[in-house]
Every structure is written in C-alpha cells, then in structure tokens.
C-alpha cells in the first residue's frame, strides 16, 4: 500500500524522516522480549491451551487497538503533521484462508510471526537469521507464483 507522506522527501532525508519509527520499533522489541511473546515456548503453550498468557496479550492488544481506532474516527483526530487518518481496508480473497493456514503451520514450528523473528535475532538467537532469510525467500516465492495461486 503506497502512502504519500515520504514522496516529496529527497533521499537524503530518508533517515531522519523515518527515525521515529526506529525509536518506536525499539520500544516494541523490548515489549516483545519482556512479555515473552517471542518465546517459542509461549507460542507452544498457546496452541496447547496451557495458559492464558498469549490470549491475554493478543486480546488486550486488540481491545486497545479497537478503542483507539474508534476514538480516532469519532473525534477525527489528525496525525502530528495534520493529515486525516486513513486506514486502508482489507479486501477478502481466498489467500486469507490458504495463506492463513500456511502461516499458522509455520507459526507453531518457528514460534514466531514476522515481528518476533527480528526480536529473537536481536536477543541473540543468531540461528533465527536463517529463519528470517527463509521467510524473505518464502515471500519472494509467493510473489513469483502469485498469478498461478487461487485467490
């Protein structure tokens, strides 16, 4: 999804324009590790219905996100640069079923969705670099065969 914010920026500013997202990412990575969301054990515990932890994390995050989006829409809160907040809608296609099942299989094996992969590497699990490279390769393979897959 193309966004308009950075289009007018010359490349030299790329770093400074995006620095705030790096800072937010650092904060986010710390939460990921400290709440053990990046732990393969926690993901297994979730799929084995061993504890409430992961359901609590995801459920709370969805509720807070939902309330935030509701408030932004209701009070027409603008971005810090004064833009109207636009959230691109998700279009349904069969990929959400097939792709969703495939990702779910991978999620339980790797114990990570894409975000936690980065946090795991940062936390010192260097073998996960192989997982990340494989995930990039998987993304590329999807692109390569996109036109032949049911959607």
């Amino acid at each position: 999804m193309e966004t308009n914010l950075n289009k007018a920026q010359p490349n030299g500013n790329l770093f400074f324009v995006n620095l705030k997202y790096l800072v937010l990412g650092v904060f986010f990575g710390i939460v990921f590790v400290k709440a053990e969301i990046v732990s393969w054990f926690r993901i297994q515990e979730m799929f084995r219905l061993g504890a409430f932890h992961m359901y609590g994390v995801i459920g709370t995050a969805v509720l807070v996100g939902m309330l935030s989006v509701y408030l932004i829409k209701k009070f027409k809160i603008k971005t810090i640069s004064g833009e109207v907040v636009v959230i691109p809608p998700k279009k349904f296609h069969k990929g959400q079923i097939y792709g969703g099942l495939i990702f779910g299989i991978g999620w339980a094996i790797t114990g990570a969705c894409p975000g936690p992969l980065f946090a795991q590497i940062g936390a010192g699990f260097l073998a996960v670099m192989i997982t990340l490279l494989s995930a990039i390769a998987g993304t590329w393979l999807y692109g390569r065969f996109q036109s032949r897959l049911p959607h």
Binding site: S134, A135, I136, A137, Y142
Partner: peptide, 19 residues
C-alpha cells in the same frame, strides 16, 4: 528454521498480512 521460515514468509504474504 528453513521450512518453518518459508511457511511464515509465504503464508503471510499470501494472506496479505500477519498477526
């Protein structure tokens, strides 16, 4: 690492998003 990673990358893109 390899098979799991491929599933994660392929699946999320096919599904047009992840968690």
């Amino acid at each position: 690492l390899v098979f799991g990673g491929l599933m994660v990358g392929f699946g999320t893109r096919y599904a047009d998003g992840c968690t």
